[in-house]
Design a protein around this nucleic acid. Sequence first.
DNA 1: TGTACATCAGTGAACGCGCGTTCACTGATGTAC
DNA 2: TGTACATCAGTGAACGCGCGTTCACTGATGTAC
Lengths: 214, 214
Amino acid sequence: MSWSKQDRKRRGYHHGNLREALVAAALDLIDAKGPAGFTFADAARAAGVSPAAPYRHFRDREALLADVARRGFEKFADQLDRAWNNGQPGPMQALENLGRAYLAFAENEPAYYAAMFEAQLPRDIDRELSEAGDRAFAVLRQAAEALCATLPKDRRPPTLMVSLHIWALSHGIASLFARGDAARRALPMAPQDLLEAGVLIYLDGLGLTGEHNR
Amino acid sequence: MSWSKQDRKRRGYHHGNLREALVAAALDLIDAKGPAGFTFADAARAAGVSPAAPYRHFRDREALLADVARRGFEKFADQLDRAWNNGQPGPMQALENLGRAYLAFAENEPAYYAAMFEAQLPRDIDRELSEAGDRAFAVLRQAAEALCATLPKDRRPPTLMVSLHIWALSHGIASLFARGDAARRALPMAPQDLLEAGVLIYLDGLGLTGEHNR
DNA sequence: TGTACATCAGTGAACGCGCGTTCACTGATGTAC
DNA sequence: TGTACATCAGTGAACGCGCGTTCACTGATGTAC
């Protein structure tokens, strides 16, 4: 928490970066108590500011949460995109990197992850929020496309379906076993290995064997 | 809500079934506002009882939530077990029924589902709760076992891994696309079909083709 | 079958507390000239 | 470079509200004899 009361004198009357500080405080509080476990007043306190101050930046608590979720999806999309790396060095290897990035995000950013997927935000609360979510899914879709393209046309499955399968498997493993918070279930193996094995078996089932694509 | 204030006269001073009524009220409230969206006092009000009454039955709000989750897991395990039906008429068909039951539960019982998987209850809060969760997973494990047993020993994958893959895929699809609440995402196909296709491809990848097992 | 009594499962009033929100305000900052 | 002024981003006091929890209580129920 870099915006403690001590800093206030240095900062003077104006905070300077309250919007960012409130988001950071929300993330800390979500980490500690879950997405439902903090209040607008909590966030203000953590940012070292009066309870009325947040209203200058967010309509209400839900708007703050939605902003956290939006930022989460943007970070998520970035990390997935970087991991996919335009399908380099090859679609299979790139897909493995993508899967690892999915799980790593759930593990390293449980607060974002919870805000994105479990804060029970109405789906249509914010256009920017749903667009950021779409951007993250688009990376998966792109990966499925590249993988399907390596199959001869007559044996090519629907790309959308493949991307949804990969998404669901990743999401299931992340939510059950890889998340970095209290809801994580124990597992006698690394979640990354579980996901990788599952994807390999699935791709085998599609007729995409490792030899052709590694 | 069958325990309204109107009924009180009929019931007299004692409620008669307050514990059950509180659980029912909690489910209604979770349906309406999510697992974080109700209070102990809300539940008492919905049950037509004074705010002090629930303390006769639950230590606090969290204990009530945990009881809801436990009941949910028990119901879930029952429904999965009935769908699996001891592997009848054949493992492939029975597995399909099992998958459908998983998604149907998420769709028809969103309140239970949310309490079970998204209420952020500490994993060790209640022994009965985690045992009920284990019972549900045991059904999936049993199914994986039966499926693996149809493969020759030298090509048999680890049963635990297979059961986790099926669990994760089902859970991912249920959480993202099949849940019966506001967090459900739109999908251009039936979630049941998406799951069935995914499982078939996966089993193909394991070397379990439909012809051998239907 | 009656009766006395223990126990159970509620009541309702009370409390302290923290939250969300509003309000008039004021210190700090930016800008036009 | 100074100055006047508009705007911005905070303060802090106040409010009504509902929650969690406790308490002494009491009506209803069950049971021993």
